[in-house]
Design a binder for these strands. Structure first.
Lengths: 163, 163
DNA sequence: TATTGTTATACTCTATAACTATA
DNA sequence: TATAGTTATAGAGTATAACAATA
């Protein structure tokens, strides 16, 4: 929400305009603000399918990589194992995926999407693609690719720095 | 964490490589992953000052806009008013800001940073700038500006779409 | 009537320790 | 000893309804 410029505001001693100008110089702040905004629209796009962002993501990697184990899903999505349990539970309860026993390792489950899961994923993916087109209406494909590369470079640099 | 390519994994029926390739095509997913990574490093950078991202942000806009009212801070940072209360409480308890009465509106408080608040903000800002330099080591100033413009365009488009 | 700050509340997200059953 | 999945738990982050005081 932008605060409109006001002439001498008699309610305080502040300047004519208020702003988050200093914060806006930080890449991190702009990334956060962009993500919050995107997330809000994406959540609305996924609501008809009763999927949250993280359940959609988990379903997506399971559809894409049949036979995944839970620890691998957690690694791929950078989610802690304990937090993934309820997500997988939910997908299984809705019969979008199945947990199949792994013959050679009785501790592990092999995750597979059901037909229903695949179909829901397909429909939801169309909604996500529509959402994506909405959030960068004027970007050409080359710009988007470049932007993604830069975001990935930042992700990697921050991860290296944090490690 | 990238999953290294493995030769025939006998633990499952999966392909040779597993990936989040489909998700990586989405700008939103890459923004989220980048932000998570950045956030983690930033939190570590702010820890010596006992500041969280949101407390630093609030302190920052109060330092920059003396006399702000709480509702204006909430608008600037896109935080719900109720959630801001505890943040402002914390800053006030640490004597980094003061809540001054507004003579012309007895419902409102006028927020000002104390000398201590200004000094802590200065030191913390140096740490944040150092953090920022770490997370995009190879970007020149022009690239960063362009990236911020694109992120702002996305933020705005998603907000318009979501409204 | 509307707004400022507040309380209460609830839901999601994230992070850690510790357990079990297997390897 | 280490690993896969799980349980319990706690801390953040976020969102809404409703209230008192004031405009």
């Amino acid at each position: 929400m932008t605060i409109s410029n006001t002439k001498k505001n008699d309610k305080s001693t502040q300047l004519d305009t208020i702003s988050d100008y200093s914060l806006r110089k930080f890449l991190g702040y702009n990334i956060k603000r962009a993500f919050n905004s995107v997330q809000s629209d994406l959540q609305r796009s996924l609501k008809p399918f009763d999927l949250r962002m993280v359940t959609y993501s988990a379903l997506s990697v399971i559809v894409e990589n049949p036979g995944l184990r839970q620890a691998q899903v957690a690694d791929l999505l950078d989610i802690e194992r304990p937090n993934l349990v309820v997500i997988i539970d939910k997908l299984q309860q809705r019969e979008l995926i199945v947990r199949a026993p792994v013959k050679t390792d009785r501790r592990a489950y092999s995750l597979h999407a059901t037909l229903m899961g695949i179909q829901l994923h397909e429909k939801a993916s169309k909604a996500v693609h529509a959402h994506e087109r909405r959030i960068y209406p004027n970007f050409d494909q080359k710009m988007v690719k470049q932007l993604i590369l830069e975001l990935n470079a930042i992700e990697q640099a921050a991860r290296d720095s944090d490690a």
